[in-house]
Design a protein around this nucleic acid. Structure first.
Length: 434
RNA sequence: GUAGAUGUAGCUCAAUGGUGAGAGCGCUGGACUGUGGCUCCAGAGGUUGCGGGUUCGAGCCCCGUCAUCUACCCCA
C-alpha cells in the first residue's frame, strides 16, 4: 500500500515547531502595528494576468514558476507567487488612493512557486511583508527596511547583513543597461553561457553571476550609481541618510538586481550565512511603476517580503528553545480506576477546564501505572488519582509530580485547591521538564 | 528543466548475491493485581519506495519510475 504523501515541496509544521512560528507571527504583527501598518489579507489565487503584467512576462516567476490552471469558468487562475502585486491590485480596486496617504499594510501568508525544492526553497512557503503605497519619500524606504530588521532583532536573530542598491528608474536604467551591453560585448567570449543570454534579456544579471570569470569582468564594470538620474540619485542619498540616522548598518551592493520587473530605485536584501545557497531571509524595494502597469494611476510604493520558513530555520539553528507557546500542554491529569471513577474523572476534567485549568485524562483504559507513566511523559505537574476507595471516602489524591508528595483532598475542595494552588498557577506556562 | 547523492521498523541506522532482514531509541504490556522517572523481561510493528530484468537464489547487481536531500537556474 502506497499511502498519500504531502505534495513535493510542501511541509507539515509539527507540534514541536508551532511555538516558534507563532512567536514569529506575533513579532511581525506587533512590529508592524507599532509602525502604523495594518493587516491586509488578499486572495491566495488571482487572475494570471495580474502577475504577468505586474511581475513581468520575462521573469523566471512568470515564465516557469507559476501554479496556473483554468477554473471551471475557463478563467486562467494562478496561485499567488508573491504578495506585492495583489496588494497593489487591492489598493487600486478599492480606490484606496482616494483616502489618506500613505496606505501602509502588512501581510502574512502562503506563496506558491513551482520550483525544484532544496535547502530553504519550497513550492509552498510563507512570507510576511509590508507595503507602503502613495508616497515616494525616501524615509519610507528606510522605514520599511528598519521594520524588517526590527522583526529580526525582536526575535533575537543575529548574523544577518543588509545589502542595499538602487537600480534607477525607467529613465536612467536603460542608459546603464546599454552601456553594460556595450562594455560586455567586447568580452562575449569570456562570459559563461548564462551571461551571454543575460546580456540580451537582462544585462544587470551579469553583475551577480557566480561564475568566476564573469565575476572578474563584472568587477570592472562601472557601478550604476554613476548612471542614476538626478531624481534617483537624490532619492538614494535620502535613503542612506535616513538609514544612518537610525544607525542601521548596511552594505552598498551594486550586484543586487532582484528578479521581479517592477522594482525601481531602491532595492535591498537581508541575507544570512546560515541558510545555504538560498541565503536571502528577505528582500524588497521600491516599485513606483507597478500601479500604472496594472492599469491604475501612477502610485509610488515600497515594501519587502521575507520568508518565514527561512527565519525559522535560522532561529532553530541558533538553538531557539522557545517552543512552548502553543504546546497544548496540560498541567493536571486525572488518573482513574474503575468504571464509576472514570465517569467521575471525565466530569472533573471538564469542570477543571471550565476553570481555565488545562486538564487531560486517559482514553485507552490503561492501568494506573500506565496512566501515571503517560502523565509523566506529557510533562504534567499534578495528577489527581481517583478510584473506588476515594469514591467511597469522598476524597481524591492529589500528587505533585515534581516532588512526589501526595495529599488527600476532600472531593468538594478539589477545584478550589487546584485553582488556588500558587505553584500550579505560576507554572501554567512552564515548558515540560525532562 | 539539468546534475549528483540517498530510499530497509514510528525514528536513527546495520545486514559478502545464500536460513525466517536485525539493533538502539520510541511504543505497548509485565516484574510492582492502586502510583511516573531508574532497572530488567516480553510483545507489537517490514510488500527492504514502486515496477521490470539478470540469477538456482536479489535488501544487495542492471534498467525504468517515484520520492527525499543538495546544487545549478532563480528566489523567500
Amino acid at each position: 500500500m502506497t499511502h498519500i504523501r504531502a505534495p513535493r515541496g510542501t511541509i507539515d509544521v509539527f507540534p514541536e515547531k508551532p511555538g516558534i512560528w507563532q512567536r514569529l507571527e506575533e513579532t511581525v504583527r506587533s512590529v508592524c502595528r507599532n509602525a502604523g501598518y495594518t493587516e491586509i489579507r488578499t486572495p491566495i489565487f488571482e487572475h494570471t494576468e495580474l502577475f504577468q503584467r505586474g511581475v513581468g512576462e520575462s521573469t523566471d516567476i512568470v515564465e516557469k514558476e507559476m501554479y496556473t490552471f483554468l477554473d471551471k469558468g475557463e478563467r486562467s487562475i494562478t496561485l499567488r507567487p508573491e504578495g506585492t502585486a495583489p496588494v497593489v491590485r487591492a489598493y487600486l480596486e478599492h480606490k484606496m488612493w482616494a483616502g489618506p496617504q500613505p496606505v501602509k499594510v502588512y501581510y502574512i501568508g502562503p506563496m506558491f512557486r513551482y520550483e525544484r525544492p532544496q535547502l530553504g526553497r519550497l513550492r509552498q512557503h510563507t512570507q510576511f511583508g509590508v507595503e507602503a503605497l502613495g508616497a515616494s519619500s525616501p524615509a519610507l524606504d528606510a522605514e520599511v527596511i528598519s521594520i524588517l530588521i526590527s522583526v529580526y532583532q525582536h526575535l533575537g536573530l543575529s548574523g544577518f547583513v543588509v545589502r542595499l542598491n538602487s537600480i534607477g528608474c525607467s529613465e536612467c536604467r536603460p542608459r546603464y543597461k546599454e552601456s553594460l551591453v556595450n562594455l560586455l560585448s567586447e568580452h562575449v567570449d569570456e562570459l559563461c553561457a548564462d551571461c551571454r543570454r543575460r546580456l540580451r534579456r537582462n544585462p544587470l544579471r551579469v553583475l551577480d553571476c557566480k561564475n568566476e570569470r564573469c565575476a572578474i569582468l563584472a568587477k570592472e564594470l562601472p557601478p550604476i550609481f554613476e548612471y542614476l538620474c538626478e531624481d534617483c540619485s537624490r532619492h538614494f542619498g535620502g535613503v542612506t541618510e535616513c538609514l544612518k540616522a537610525l544607525d542601521l548598518v548596511y552594505e552598498l551592493d551594486p550586484t543586487i538586481v532582484r528578479g521581479l520587473d517592477y522594482y525601481t530605485k531602491t532595492v535591498f536584501e537581508v541575507v544570512h550565512s546560515g541558510l545555504g545557497a538560498q541565503d536571502a531571509l528577505g528582500g524588497g524595494g521600491r516599485y513606483d511603476g507597478l500601479a500604472e502597469e496594472l492599469g491604475g494611476t501612477q502610485t509610488p510604493g515600497v515594501g519587502f517580503a521575507a520568508g518565514i520558513e527561512r527565519a525559522v530555520q535560522v532561529l532553530q539553528d541558533a538553538g531557539d528553545k522557545e517552543t512552548s507557546t502553543d504546546a497544548g500542554e496540560v498541567t493536571v491529569f486525572i488518573a482513574a480506576m474503575g468504571d464509576e471513577a472514570k465517569i467521575e474523572a471525565f466530569r472533573i476534567t471538564h469542570a477543571l477546564r471550565k476553570q481555565g485549568i488545562s486538564t487531560d485524562i486517559d482514553y485507552l483504559d490503561r492501568s494506573l501505572r500506565a496512566q501515571m507513566k503517560y502523565a509523566d511523559r506529557q510533562g504534567v505537574k499534578t495528577v489527581v488519582i481517583i478510584g473506588e476507595d476515594e469514591l467511597k471516602g469522598d476524597y481524591v489524591i492529589v500528587r505533585d509530580m515534581v516532588t512526589g508528595e501526595q495529599t488527600r483532598v476532600p472531593f468538594g475542595d478539589l477545584i478550589k485547591i487546584l485553582t488556588q494552588n500558587t505553584i500550579l498557577s505560576k507554572d501554567l506556562k512552564l515548558p515540560r521538564e525532562k
